[in-house]
Amino acid sequence: MFERILIDSLIRSMQVGSLYALMALGITLTMSVLKLPNFAHAEFVTVGAYTALIVSRNVSTNPIIILGLSAIVASVVALVSHITVFRPFEKQKSSIYIMLLASFAVGLIIRYVLFLTADTFDLFDQRIQVPLEIWYRTDNFILSNVFFWVVPTSIVLVIALSLLLNATPLGREMRALADNFDLARVIGIPVERVKWLTWLLVGALAGISGALWGIQTSVSPLMGWVVILSVFAAAILGGLSSFPGTILGAYVVAFSENTIMQVLNFQFGLSFSFKPAIPFIIIVIVLLIRPEGFTQFFKSNRSLKR
C-alpha cells in the first residue's frame, strides 16, 4: 500500500515538477532579461489553458494544434501587456515596486476578463477534450498518455530554450540585455526588438504550460493564480537567474508538495490542507542556509546574471 502511494506520488511529482519548471523558466526569463517580477505570468498560463479548452472543443483535439494555438494566443497577450502597460512604465523609469504592482493589475484584469468569459459560456472547471488513454499499467501504478505529453514536452522545451539562449546569436543578445541593459543599448543592440521577442517567448512558454496543466487537471479562471506561488517559489530557489537552478527548484517544490506531503500524511496523519505550506517551509530553510538559492550549484558562465 505504501509503495503504491509512493510511486504514484513520485509520478505526480515528475509531472507537476516539469510543468512548474516550464512556468518558472518564463518567470526567470522575464526577471533577468526584462527586469520584471511578473505576477501576471499566472494569467498568461490561464489564458493558454482556456485557449486549449476552446480549441479542443471547437477546432481539434490534436494536442499539437492545441499547444500551438495556446502558445500563440498567450504570447500575443504577453506582448500586448508589455506594449500597453509595462513599456509606458519603463519609459517613465518606474521603480521595480511599481512594475510589480502593475503586473498584479495586469493579472487581475486578465483574470476577471476570463471570469466573465467563463461565466458567459459556462466554462468553469471544464476538462480539455483530449482522449485519455492508459499506456502502461502495473499493479502499482498507471501511466496515461497525459504523462507522456507533459513530461517529454516540458523537457524538450526546456532544452530548446537553453539552446536558443546559449547557442544562437539571438540568445546572445538576450543574455547581453540580462547582463547590462544600458550597455546593450549603447553598443547598438536593438533592445526594444529583443524585449518584444522575449515577451513573445515568455508568453508562448506560459501558454503551453497552461494547456498542459489544463490537460492534466481541469481549467478554471483561478488555476494560474493558484499555482503561481509555487512557481515563484521554484524560481526563487533557482536564484531568479539560473536556468538549471530554476529547473531543480521546480522539481524540489513539486516533490515536496506531492511526495513529501503523501509521506507525512501516511505516516503522521498530517492533513492535506497543509500542502500549500510545505514548499514555503522548504524555501525558508533553503534560503536561510543558501541565500543565493541553487545558483551556486551551477556556477558556470551560462547563468544569466551574476
Binding site: R172, R175, A184, I189
Partner: peptide, 15 residues
C-alpha cells in the same frame, strides 16, 4: 563597461 557574465568573444561579437 562589459558584459561581465559573458565571454571575451561574446563581448567582442555583440556590437
Amino acid at each position: 563597461s562589459l558584459f561581465y557574465q559573458m565571454t571575451v568573444l561574446d563581448n567582442t561579437i555583440l556590437p
